[in-house]
Design a binder for these strands. Structure first.
Lengths: 262, 262
DNA sequence: CTCTGGATGTCGCTA
DNA sequence: TAGCGACGTCCAGAG
């Protein structure tokens, strides 16, 4: 159940905040504040009206009235304290110990506080992330190249992982790196490092194929220099392919089950 | 000024939301909903109590009562619509055209809506990001190596950028890659690609130095294999160094000015 | 517009 | 716990 305090005195607000924090309630504060952060970096934010959200697990977000990102924040591993200074200001402090970080929110005015417990046991399911892409291509390597046989996915190589590993029609080893977004130079370098690692270890130079829906021009250049290849893959096609299968054979629950297994 | 609606009818909520959206107000909705996303990926979120924030620039966030990240969202380049379905449900739809993305929030219950304009012209200043680190080391290359002369920062090399470029005490070219956090294999590869690019273009093999506060073990291995070097840098030292200078010679405003210039 | 690399990135997984 | 890589990453800056 949600509660709200508005036009309260500083002491009322203080009381409500302390109470809510100890009960691990969700808290939303709207008011005018300055913010100081110190830790992995340092930042200062001069006065303005903001929304402060303290979540039930202690995560803290400070949002300006615009933009996607919180201007300041603290993840859930924090201790949160509230105190009064100068008789009329409320200061919220969030401290994290590892890494050592301190966030201070200094309110010159609080417009309202909403607090209470929200119940959310909803299931969140994401489709067509890189794992889905990998699983579909594992089952259907012909979408990458005719005659390609995939023998392993998530193959460990000294530190990192090869997305897909197999052999081409001529029996030559193939290392495949997947990207679900436009691939840049970084993706090429990643693939290259796996190819090199493999060559060092096995003494055989494998083919390296970058599979992505698109690729940047400098990435193409890098591929050529490093004698690597790339294949364009249509995500929509992959996707509809997967859906087709599911409509007939799988319910959402089954899909979730399958997901848990891999 | 903030306004609030609570225990309203579906039609009241609908009216308030439409009005607020057209006025580009900040809106906070707390209620029970399901969420569907379709675009770069696809996701489904089953029923639960959440906080929905629509910001004054159209950015939209859906937060569960726990965690730092919004479970679903839409950046500020969206069209937002509200409609009623089944006579008792409110659906908020946020559509982005590039990339094509649709977000649907289907409310089975709304607990409260807060709306209004927030005024926030506060100045946000971040210290000790990689740019600060780069600028300080540009002025004081001796913190990396004795006799090192830096001649260029943000040097463009075919696509990417070299953080710092200079010559060592023997006149040998040095490429420096900076990381303000623990450096991993990716940082080594990035440095390596710049070194290679430089060598290909100039025909001279430069030294490559990774400067970071710490480095992972496999990154060290990679450095050795690729004949690259690394220097540990104490961020706190760099930082206090900068602060020392500012205390005596610069106000916050001047710092901001300088920041704008670079 | 695309491309590139940073971020207090966060998050999840694995050794 | 550290390391590694994905992310609907977002975002700013440059060409």
């Amino acid at each position: 159940m949600l509660d709200m305090v508005r036009s309260g005195s500083v002491d009322e607000y203080l009381e409500v905040l302390r109470n809510s924090i100890s009960k691990r309630e969700l808290i939303i504060i709207i008011g005018e504040c300055t913010v100081d952060y110190s830790g992995r970096s340092e930042s200062k934010l001069t006065s303005g009206e903001r929304i402060v959200v303290i979540k039930q697990d202690g995560a803290l977000l400070i949002h300006r009235p615009f933009g996607y990102s919180p201007v300041n924040w603290q993840p859930s591993t924090v201790v949160i304290e509230v105190r009064k200074i100068d008789d009329d200001r409320i200061v919220v402090t969030a401290i994290r110990s590892k890494p050592r970080e301190i966030l201070n929110i200094n309110f010159s005015r609080i417009d309202l506080i909403i607090h209470g417990k929200l119940v959310d046991h909803g299931e969140f399911i994401m489709y067509m992330d890189e794992l889905d892409m990998r699983d579909i291509l594992f089952e259907h390597p012909e979408m990458i190249e005719k005659g390609l046989k995939i023998v392993e996915k998530e193959k460990p190589v000294n530190g990192g992982y090869i997305d897909l590993f197999g052999y081409d029609v001529n029996g030559k080893p193939v290392i495949i790196e997947l990207k679900r977004v436009t691939a840049g130079r970084d993706a090429v370098l990643q693939l290259y490092s796996y190819v090199k690692k493999y060559e060092e270890k096995l003494g055989v130079k494998p083919r390296g194929i970058l599979v992505a829906p698109a690729i940047s021009s400098s990435a193409i250049e890098a591929l050529n220099k490093l004698r690597l290849e790339w294949r364009e893959i249509d995500l929509k096609k992959l996707w509809s392919f997967k859906k087709q299968k599911e409509v007939h054979h799988e319910s959402l629950l089954k899909y979730l089950g399958k997901r848990g297994e891999r």
